[in-house]
Amino acid sequence: MITSCTAEKVLTVGQLATRSGVAVTALHFYESKGLIHSTRSSGNQRRYPRETLRRVAVIKMAQRLGIPLSTIHAALQTLPVDRAPSVNDWQRLSAQWREDLNQRIDRLLALRDQLDGCIGCGCLSLQSCPLRNCNDELGEHGPGPQLLEPGGEATP
């Protein structure tokens, strides 16, 4: 006798958590933010379409890249809800995020390279500041650590 291998079409929250490697509480949070969706069983238990596994994988990858949840939400809204995101879907989403990631990488590299220098905070601690901010000249450029802000081209 030949038996067919058919996977369940829906997953419980526990099954989804186990398969995705994401805590049940995180899945509930994702659902509260509209990132994933469930239906309810007759016993009022959450049931997730199997396609949710790939959505959760996309969410996890985007979070690892440092993409804000609001941006992830906006991207997921462009995907069909009746199927798993495809390779083409992922390529489109990742292309949208690539430029932002490149800009953040550039900012992080600049921060790393300037980390041990003056941040232009305006503290006027001339005895301990490695670069003098005499007369708080950087204060003219705005509040906060001017040399660490994006576009912080001010020179002390």
Rank of each mutant, 00 (worst) to 15 (best):
L138D: 04
R64C: 00
T12H: 15
G21I: 06
W90H: 05
T155V: 11
H141K: 15
H37M: 11
Y30S: 00
D82W: 15
L76M: 04
P130R: 04
Q77W: 09
L27R: 04
F29W: 09
I119D: 14
N135K: 09
Y30K: 03
M61I: 04
T155G: 05
R46N: 00
V58T: 00
G122I: 01
Q45A: 12
I67Y: 01
A26Q: 04
T6C: 11
R104I: 13
L124H: 07
G152M: 00
L126H: 03
G120F: 09
T39M: 09
T155E: 04
E153Q: 08
E99F: 12
E149I: 11
P145M: 10
L93P: 04
G21L: 09
S32Y: 12
S4T: 15
G144W: 08
Q91T: 10
E140W: 08
T155W: 03
R47H: 02
S86M: 03
Q146K: 13
R46Y: 00
L108M: 09
L11K: 06
P49A: 13
V10L: 15
L126D: 11
F29A: 02
L76F: 08
T18V: 07
R19P: 04
T155M: 03
P156L: 05
W90D: 14
D136K: 02
N133L: 11
L108K: 09
S32P: 07
Q127N: 14
S20E: 09
E137T: 08
A95W: 05
L148Y: 05
P145G: 04
P150N: 05
E8T: 15
P145W: 05
H37E: 02
C134T: 11
P156S: 02
E8I: 10
V24H: 12
Q91P: 09
N88W: 13
P150K: 11
S41C: 10
P150D: 09
N135L: 05
I105Q: 10
